[in-house]
């Protein structure tokens, strides 16, 4: 039971972070379908940090270093999206998809190159971080508290405050609703959209490292992050682009995702004798159903997905 709670909170943390990333980007008017790719890059940065860092360092230092590197790689990767979608007015769906494919390829190539350089017979795409991963966890009785849970919670609160209580947040949202109107009162739409995209890179980058360190202590980058970036988008839509609702939606989705990891621990679930594939499928099925019910009267930012062109009306 405690295990189910741990995993629910962990996966919910991932979804909260990434969905908030999507939320910032979409409020500024850019659909970020590249979240999945940004997660992979953040995960890559974090995993390599965990691999090379001295496990003897204080836990706080390790956690901070991992977060900083993940944020930086995520933000750098997000600039590719910003440059294409904001400055060159490219098709946001296409660029997002390209970023997802690119990240999987880049991450696999980098990891394999490192593995091959260490040992020519090792052609796996895995990174191991058994020892340093322990720094991320604090045991409280049976419950394994992970520092990332705290970070996700803080991100949730900060996002709420930034979006609704600051000048910056309100301006950001104006650019997603009606960029021409925002421009007419002197807000630089391009700058705001860049801010939205970079913040989403930051949050999705952390989300990536949280996801790959959640259960295992080795990650094969060939698999990317298994559609989690898109689950986060579903969470964001279910949460109607509002931070608090996103938090609650993430808990629901996190629960179903956690179930697929730990269902064998429950006697009545194993007694049902359902193949594990069904549990693996569950989060995706649930999100389809949820999307079907919530999309028809969605509160999506009105100008999202449309490149802003100063000259057009």
């Amino acid at each position: 039971m405690v295990l189910l709670l741990t995993y629910t909170l962990l996966f919910a943390s991932v979804l909260i972070l990434v969905a908030l990333g999507g939320c910032f980007s979409e409020h500024s008017g850019v659909i970020n379908l590249g979240l999945e790719g940004i997660m992979v890059m953040g995960a890559l940065g974090g995993a390599l940090t965990l691999k090379y860092i001295n496990p003897g360092l204080p836990a706080l230092v390790i956690v901070l270093a991992v977060v900083v590197v993940s944020v930086v790689t995520g933000v750098i990767y997000a600039t590719l999206l910003g440059f294409a979608c904001i400055n060159l007015k490219a098709d946001q769906t296409l660029v997002g998809t390209a970023l997802n494919m690119l990240s999987a390829a880049v991450a696999t190539v980098i990891v394999k190159a490192i593995n091959i350089a260490e040992n020519p017979d090792n052609v796996s795409s895995g990174v191991q971080y058994v020892n340093s991963k322990k720094a991320l966890i604090v045991k409280i009785g049976n419950f394994e508290f992970n520092w990332f849970m705290l970070i996700a919670f803080l991100a949730l609160i900060c996002s709420y405050i930034v979006l609704y209580k600051t000048k910056f947040g309100l301006r950001l949202m104006a650019c997603g609703e009606h960029p021409q109107a925002a421009d007419s009162v002197g807000i630089n739409v391009y700058k705001m959209r860049w801010a939205g995209v970079l913040i989403s890179g930051m949050l999705a980058g952390i989300g990536g490292i949280v996801y790959i360190t959640s259960g295992v202590s080795e990650w094969k980058f060939e698999n990317g992050v298994a559609g989690f970036g898109f689950l986060a988008l579903a969470v964001m839509i279910f949460g109607q682009w509002k931070p608090v609702n996103i938090g609650l939606a993430a808990l629901l989705f996190g629960f179903f995702r956690a179930l697929s990891n730990v269902y064998s621990g429950f006697d009545f679930l194993t007694a049902l004798n359902i193949p594990s594939s069904v549990y693996n499928m569950m989060p995706y099925v649930i999100s389809l159903i949820v999307l079907a019910f919530t999309s028809s009267n969605s509160r999506a930012p009105k100008a999202e997905g449309i490149p802003y062109d100063k000259g057009s009306r």
């Binding site: 998809t97 898109f230 999307l291």
Partner: peptide
């Protein structure tokens, strides 16, 4: 139901 075809496609 106005579901974004990219997200439903991935699911």
């Amino acid at each position: 139901l106005n579901v974004n075809e990219v997200i439903s496609g991935i699911m």
